[in-house]
């Protein structure tokens, strides 16, 4: 709790910096950036489905590893991807650790205290790690190489209702406005802090900031609604439809389909 306010300020700044970095990555001329957002969205869905239907760890290792060259071809920095490629499945695997001991099956290794790792348990945890790793990494690949509004347009072209798209777009838009506001409030508070604040005082400040943020966001939501009404919004939203499929989308789509079918056949 010693530096909770400073830590919150750093986390907020890091989130804003990540948003800028993601926007920059999405503008690079890499493989995934050249694909239409619809192609990418369907590709990620296909990869997630395949990863969850494959039962052979070797095939899953191949799918999991394939994310790395795809990321490299999309000019994503290894350090950026590694946080997700290794971090997220590791957390999932840790959650799955009890399965090592409680899943019935042939004993692989016996520990002290009567605990034993079963081969079936180890296989389950490995499958969990690889499935989560492949699914999360491919979703991150989509997020880092696609601008949010392109993704929304892709969802529109795939049939998502306009009102839902508008709500999603506004959620994304105002997360950053509120993060900036939080950052400003934290910086202003920290700049007026002389010496360390006690844990209870920091909790008090955090509570006050949360309350102010809630009040400001409520005020802003009212004003945003007025701004929408002022420009003709009457509850029935209509959004732009754009994006065009190109030959690269076709080549990629066919390649991915063949790859996924092969993986499903080999990993059944």
């Amino acid at each position: 709790m010693k530096n909770a306010l400073a830590k919150t300020a750093r986390t907020v700044s890091a989130s804003l910096a990540f948003s800028l970095a993601a926007e920059t990555t999405a503008r690079q001329g890499g493989l995934f950036q050249r694909l239409d957002a619809r192609t990418k969205l369907l590709s990620v869905l296909a990869l997630v489905l395949t990863a969850n239907l494959v039962h052979q760890p070797v095939v899953l290792v191949f799918l999991y590893a394939a994310i790395l060259p795809l990321a490299a071809a999309s000019r994503i920095r290894v350090r950026t991807l590694a946080r997700f490629w290794l971090g997220i499945p590791l957390v999932a695997a840790l959650i799955g650790v009890p399965a090592l001991f409680i899943t019935p099956g042939p004993t692989l290794y016996r520990l002290t205290g009567g605990l034993a790792i079963s081969a079936t348990g180890l296989r389950s945890v490995t499958l969990l790690y690889l499935r989560v790793g492949t699914s999360a990494s491919s979703a991150i690949l989509l997020a880092l190489t696609t601008r949010w509004h392109d993704l929304l347009h892709a969802l529109a072209r795939l049939g998502m209702p306009d009102v839902l798209l508008l709500a999603l777009g506004m959620t994304y838009r105002y997360i950053y406005t509120l993060l900036e506001l939080t950052n400003d409030m934290l910086t202003a508070r920290l700049s007026r802090s002389v010496g360390p604040l006690s844990a209870s005082k920091q909790r008090q400040v955090q509570g006050a900031l949360a309350g102010t943020l809630l009040a400001r966001s409520l005020d802003m939501s009212g004003e945003v609604y007025l701004a929408m009404r002022s420009r003709g919004f009457s509850g029935r939203a209509r959004t732009l439809q754009r994006g065009r499929l190109q030959w690269l989308d076709l080549v990629w789509g066919v390649g991915l389909l063949v790859g996924c079918t092969l993986a499903l056949w080999m990993g059944r």
């Binding site: 949010w148 509004h149 506004m170 994304y172 838009r173 945003v224 701004a227 929408m228 959004t239």
Partner: peptide, 14 residues
């Protein structure tokens, strides 16, 4: 308050 869309183009087209 006025710029609530995901991109400038979407905003101007709203």
């Amino acid at each position: 308050v006025q710029l609530f869309s995901a991109s400038v183009l979407d905003e101007v087209a709203f």
